[in-house]
Design a protein around this nucleic acid. Structure first.
Lengths: 210, 210
DNA sequence: ACCTTCATGATACGCCTGTATCATGAAGGT
DNA sequence: ACCTTCATGATACAGGCGTATCATGAAGGT
């Protein structure tokens, strides 16, 4: 066989190019040609590795989700080894609020895809339900465990707290990206939320840390 | 002067047509021609009333915000006259979760515009900060008042609760629209949240001091 | 040495887009 | 009656889009 190239790598490179282009111009402005230019390859190559635009978009979405999933797990692993539940939850919200460029890009792209998925159910059925659902389960498990350990008041319902936390952080992310909230303020709101979830006594007094 | 037409009305009609078209095909698929067809007028008329596409989009966004604002105030007015704060907050979340077609459309379009605004700060600077900010202030005032009346525990911070509620409902709306949550479940999560905000003692569980 | 297959370039095609132009009813002011 | 202005129609134009086609290096199997 003739010279063979690492297709996976090439596809990943092109997906990254799409992400960069979309972060700059918006996903709506992404074209096969602009992706090719951003990746430094010819239009033909983009066609070659992804048949058509739908395939490219789908692949980029998967690529994005995979990247974010890895990032979140890395952040979790970086925590001191037996990290209390609250610290892990805090790590989650800190990761979810777009403060640095990478998370900003992620949130922008994810929301852009979400909007597309709202009118094109075919696109990304997997990413949009199974992706966040895994995250939700992860969080719910975390909270259930914490509740058993006494780290979380027993009346908190992990099956509600998990989607609540997910929805809240996503909403805050959007507020940040549209310029309505600074990332500092969004983070403060998220932390206020975490405090409320973990503190038994919500009545007055500054939240105690422990 | 020759025959004159109500420009405001025409513009509103065309904006409605845009909203319908976008609700069906997605905002990204909206074109001058598709809007004209949906409104049952010629392409020329859309140009006539809105110079260019940017103007049309901007007007549609304003139109949308105005409609939603009115809808929310109507819902508020429909409440029994001296409605307790909690009931008004509940009305808000019930209005915000997309369950019927109209609120589904609103959420879809609003999010679509939000995504555009993320890479095009010029578009809709007003709608995206001043719009929700008014809502936030409205909510914050409501909560402040409730706290003074004893309807809300004193340690709740309206300046945090308001953006938290806003972000939460928006996030839940997105989850519903992407098919990750049913509207029933989203509403349940939102109500769980409202319960937590208003109840001094977290329900049903043992621990608690007051 | 040759042939097959992979990888890539160049380019063309038809469609749809936003926008511009020209024309023409319709109707009140004079 | 006429003219001006508003409102609308028909159509053209240039550009960008996704996609398809044809050609051609590059390299291992035989």
């Amino acid at each position: 066989m003739p010279r063979t190239v690492d297709h996976g790598q090439r596809r990943a490179d092109i997906c990254d190019a799409l992400v960069r282009a979309a972060a700059r111009d918006g996903l709506h402005a992404v074209t096969m040609r602009s992706v090719a230019a951003e990746a430094g390859v010819s239009l033909r190559l983009v066609q070659y590795y992804f048949e058509n635009k739908g395939g490219l978009m789908h692949a980029a979405l998967l690529h994005l989700e995979e990247r974010s999933h890895r990032r979140w797990n890395e952040r979790l692993a970086a925590l001191p080894s037996p990290a209390p539940a609250r610290a892990r939850v805090h790590a989650f919200v800190a990761e979810a609020i777009p403060d640095d460029e990478e998370s900003r890009v992620f949130h922008l792209l994810w929301t852009s895809f979400a909007v597309l998925a709202m009118t094109d159910p075919a696109l990304a059925e997997q990413p949009f339900v199974s992706g966040p659902e895994r995250l939700e389960r992860q969080l719910a498990d975390l909270l259930t465990e914490a509740r058993a350990d006494g780290g979380l008041p027993t009346d908190r319902d992990p099956a509600m707290e998990a989607p609540r936390l997910l929805a809240l952080t996503h909403g805050l992310g959007t507020d940040v990206l549209t310029g309505r909230l600074t990332s500092d303020r969004a983070l403060a709101v998220a932390e206020y939320h975490v405090d409320r979830v973990f503190d038994t006594r919500s009545t007055e007094g500054p939240p105690h840390i422990s």
